[in-house]
Simulated scan of single mutants.
Amino acid sequence: MDILIRGLFLFSPLMLTFYQTTAQDDLWSQYCGASYNDRIDSTYKSDLDNVLNSLAGRNNGFGFYNSTSGQANAAAFCRGDLEPETCHNCVVKASRRLPQYCPNQFDAGIWYEHCLLRYSNEPMGYGVDDSFWINTSTTTVSNSSYDQWKQTIANLLLELRQEAAAGGPLRKYAPGNVTADGLPPIYGYMQCSPDLLSTECDQCLAEATDQTRIYDKSLGIQFYNPSCIVRYEVFKFLNSTCGYMAPEYAMDGLFSTKSDVYSFGVLLLEIVSGQQNNIFRFEDEPQNFLLTVWNLWKENKGEQLIDRCLIQDVPISEALRWINIALLCVQEDPRYRPTMSTVVYMLEGQWSSNFPTPLEPRFSFARLASVIEITTTTSDTTIDTSIEPISSGIGSR
């Protein structure tokens, strides 16, 4: 247990990423629609002022804001990896600056790296907006690597599109990264305004993907419109907490104490393996972290996961016990994850009987690329209703 506690402190930079905020909110673009006359449309101006002043207080809890007052309607959403404070600050900034850029417009929009905001005298949330903007990197891939680059990007964007469109009504966001021989690492995400239907989100992202193909030699692209965003770069620009996100939070914005249990399970596996989940390698190849752990575990080869340095201080049986506990923590259905108090009892050896058998976890949040293709593993796990949520046996010896 002492070794494990020291491991948690050694990995403290990873934990800090949960609370990391970014100071920069670079302006990407803005648009100003049809103008109105201050004297004739004073009612709309008053409604718009009310909407923009109240918008930052109308968060759905997952980075989506909307507000209506009289004729004026406004909505904003933040990039899905942001901490609440960073998101809120970006929306406040956008609410204040957009009227400065567009002082007398019926409709307008503004895009920062961290959030977008739009307002209109028309109702919002009705289908996909077909206007769009694209920023591209001036650096391009070499001709000799172009085919491999093109295929790798296409596979990544397809996976992100499917995952984002499958999101719930609170958030439709999918981050990812790939590595391929001879290419730089590629980091990207797709996101839709959560008020879109899944079919509308898929439509918007599909159209965005078609547009990005025109510039697919570029080493970085930012596509955005009022309905969805597509971005990829060859440098890290997202907060690195996605691999710790529980599936129900990443996909549907649902959060509970069991979401923290999931994050702890990933961290525990990182300590045992001595590697981070987003850059995990096994047998000198980049691998899907949870998929590899699960396959080794079910084949009774968990010892192959253990960091050689850890074995010097911890019995193999103890490290295998930690893997078992971690896999219980990362089960897809939060009902079958232990509570943190139960986890502590397990780690301290106070669990009186054999641990429950973990179910297959979900793998979609760690992505794997081989030389030119991404291998996606989909888990269609059916929960065995005969398995009870883990709650008994605490404190027994």
Rank of each mutant, 00 (worst) to 15 (best):
D2S: 11
I3R: 13
G7A: 07
L10P: 01
L14H: 03
M15Y: 05
T17I: 12
L27Y: 07
Q30Y: 13
Y31N: 10
T43R: 12
Y44T: 00
S54A: 14
G57V: 05
S67D: 01
A72W: 04
V91L: 05
A108T: 13
Y112T: 00
C115W: 04
E122W: 01
G127F: 06
G127Y: 05
F132Q: 07
D147V: 04
T152D: 06
I153W: 07
G167R: 01
R171A: 01
K172P: 02
G176A: 11
N177C: 12
A180T: 08
A180K: 00
P184T: 15
I186W: 05
Y189A: 12
L196V: 09
L197D: 04
S198R: 10
T199F: 10
Q203G: 06
C204V: 14
A208P: 04
A208T: 14
G220Y: 11
I221C: 08
E233C: 01
C242M: 09
C242I: 12
C242N: 10
M245G: 00
L254Y: 14
Y262G: 02
S263L: 08
G274P: 09
E283R: 00
Q287P: 08
L290Y: 13
T292H: 12
K298T: 15
G302I: 09
A326D: 11
M340C: 10
M346S: 03
W351R: 06
S352V: 12
F363A: 09
F363S: 08
F365G: 04
R367W: 02
V371F: 11
I372P: 02
E373K: 15
T382R: 12
D384W: 07
S386F: 09
P389M: 10
S391H: 07
S391N: 09
G393W: 06
